[in-house]
């Protein structure tokens, strides 16, 4: 097999593994976890989301991500839904994360005051 064929096969496998992890859930949540984001408190924010998933929050794919580069609004959290413009929350705290889970992820209510414009 040629390298290009191998990589195509590997890509299909990789995509399958990602899907098996729940990528096709109706909402995908990305929490910034670079040094800068962690310094701004994103580890605590991540824990809130992880706890929610552990205690039964379903149909949500949770992932970490690197820094997108919007320093003074960190920690940042993106909520991505197929067919909609991804929503980007800035300056997320532990408390805000809990509210994002309750209002946005569970009830579909966008908290627009916290969105990055």
């Amino acid at each position: 097999m040629k390298p290009l064929e191998i990589i195509r096969k590997k890509r299909a496998e990789a995509i399958n593994r990602i899907i098996a992890k729940g990528y096709l859930s109706s909402k995908r949540v990305y929490v910034g976890m670079a040094t800068c984001e962690i310094a701004a408190g994103s580890k605590e924010v991540m824990e809130v989301f992880q706890d929610a998933v552990k205690s039964g929050l379903s149909d949500v794919y949770l992932s970490q991500k690197g820094c997108a580069g919007r320093c003074n609004l960190e920690p940042t959290v993106e909520v991505v839904e197929e067919g909609r413009i991804p929503l980007k929350y800035g300056l997320v705290t532990k408390e805000k994360a809990k509210e994002i889970i309750e209002r946005h992820l569970k009830k579909g209510e966008v908290i627009k005051e916290w969105l990055i414009k």
Partner: peptide, 25 residues
């Protein structure tokens, strides 16, 4: 291009976005 949109610790995320295709090519 991938900073802020993939999980940097998951090679699958990178491969799914045509990662290592340039090397294979």
């Amino acid at each position: 291009r991938n900073c802020g949109i993939i999980d940097p610790e998951n090679i699958d995320d990178y491969i799914s976005l045509r990662g290592y295709e340039a090397l294979a090519k």
